[in-house]
Simulated assay, not measured.
Amino acid sequence: MTPAARTQAAIELLDAIIAAAQEAGAAADTLIARYFATRRYAGSKDRRAVRELVYAAIRQCGERPPSGRAAMLLLTERDPEIAARFDGSPHGPAAIQQGEPVAVSGVVPAWIGRELEQSGLPAASWPALVARAPLDVRIRSDVDAGEALSTFPDAQPIAGLDRGWRLPAGTDVAPLAGVAEVQDAGSQAVSLAAEARPGMTVVDLCAGAGGKTLALADAMSGTGRIIACDVDRARLSRLPPRADKAKLTIVETRLLNPGKEAEALGDLAGAADVVFVDAPCSGTGTWRRNPEARWRLTPERLKRLTATQAHVLELAAPLVRPGGSIVYVVCSLLDAEGTLQAEQFLSGHPGWKASTPALPMGAPHGAGVRLSPVHDESDGFFVARLVAPC
């Protein structure tokens, strides 16, 4: 592909990504993979170059742009080389016309900016929220990290995480299959808030594909019981093969029926040492990996998410044994989903109290701890440990 053709491909992909964001369609990564699956002529260098153009444009547009061309034209204002590709050549973008729409530069949509400021994150901190993320992995506890990473000379240990390592972005981690999981440092850190130990009974109430389930099970050293639950059959079905590959035999999965979750959890009432609630959220802490997610979030969607979070906390409470705990986690930086949810739960459940988790990163924030890309070089999270009365 010529440079002009790569730029046109990026414009076409941006159009698809913008439409998907407006219509709750597929994520950018998925759309990019689909695009190149039908264009076998594009080599690895072409795919990499187009992908970099797409994400550079997404990161420059806080508000959803009117079109992929408008987003790419914003890049031309800063990069004359990209501007020169708008030459009308075959397979390239048409020449730039005076007065045509150009996307507005920014970091976040205006309404989200107000939410961030109210949550203690000033505008100066926002660029870090959409910067490119590193590649972190968690080495299995029964594996020698030095041996596993012997062919990765650039791997660096992550401070405070015994099994956490950071690799250069784009590293091929296929050789680590079965001995390591790709997992952000922040995700590894918040899993520690559960203080999972051998012999415990742990319920992972919103397990999804099980990234944190595997971290919890690994900390339990193969003894005890961990029940991974979710309402999403497709995501939950990916967990058993991952657990088998990691040799974690204590993981059970349980598919929940939306609206009837309490019935399916009845046998676990009062049995859990820890209920881990990695609640559905806005994902504002993961924009480094999914920057187009800023265009998907609306006030209405945020309201639905906070209602779901409160519902899941109510489901968790009856499962906890006296003196046990709920570990509430969201990959969000918004107080509406974080500390305010924890405080609302505590106000409605007399006798419960917050116990600030001792984590290797993050800072106390309201009823828990907040991690952020700004200060911790990790994804953004809020985590609270809510302890049941004895």
Rank of each mutant, 00 (worst) to 15 (best):
V130A: 06
A33T: 09
V104F: 04
V251R: 00
L129T: 12
S347C: 05
E77Y: 13
A131E: 09
A316K: 04
G106W: 10
I112Y: 08
G348L: 14
Q60A: 15
V104A: 14
A37S: 13
S347N: 05
G211P: 04
P350Y: 01
R370E: 03
Q309E: 05
G92Q: 00
G283S: 01
L305I: 15
P122E: 06
E314T: 05
G210I: 08
R370D: 02
T298I: 03
G324H: 01
R242Y: 09
R288Q: 09
P168E: 12
R64C: 13
A279I: 00
L74Y: 01
G178S: 02
C229T: 12
R39Q: 13
H375K: 09
C390S: 15
G208T: 06
H91L: 13
P258K: 03
P153L: 08
A4I: 06
R163C: 05
H311A: 07
H349I: 07
R385T: 08
L192M: 12
D136Y: 02
H375A: 15
A28W: 08
T2W: 00
P90N: 09
P101Y: 00
D379S: 04
S150F: 08
S44T: 13
P65F: 02
L319K: 05
Q22V: 15
A193C: 15
W295R: 08
R85V: 13
A177I: 14
R163N: 14
L236Y: 03
S372Y: 06
V143L: 07
L176Y: 10
R321C: 11
A316G: 01
R225P: 15
D79R: 14
T308L: 15
G368T: 01
A124K: 14
Q344E: 12
T308F: 12
R385G: 11
V107Q: 10
T2Q: 04
G25E: 07
P109R: 06
D29A: 14
L192S: 09
G99Y: 00
S105T: 12
P90R: 13
Q341I: 05
V182Y: 08
P291H: 04
E263K: 15
H349N: 12
Q183D: 02
E292A: 10
L205V: 09
P360I: 08
A83K: 14
P280H: 02
D154Q: 11
G224P: 05
G211N: 07
R132K: 14
G208N: 02
T298M: 02
P240M: 05
L31Y: 04
E300A: 11
L214Q: 10
G338S: 08
N257Y: 03
G338H: 01
H365L: 02
L31N: 09
A10P: 06
L319S: 01
I82E: 02
S332M: 01
V274F: 06
W111S: 09
A37Q: 14
G283T: 04
G210R: 06
G368C: 06
W352V: 04
A131C: 08
L333I: 07
D267P: 03
L265Y: 02
T201F: 09
L297N: 04
V179N: 07
D267M: 07
A367R: 00
P198M: 04
G368V: 00
V108S: 11
Q98V: 15
S150K: 15
Y328K: 00
P109A: 03
P134V: 06
A262H: 13
L313P: 03
S237Q: 13
P127A: 11
E52P: 09
G351S: 01
D278F: 00
V173E: 12
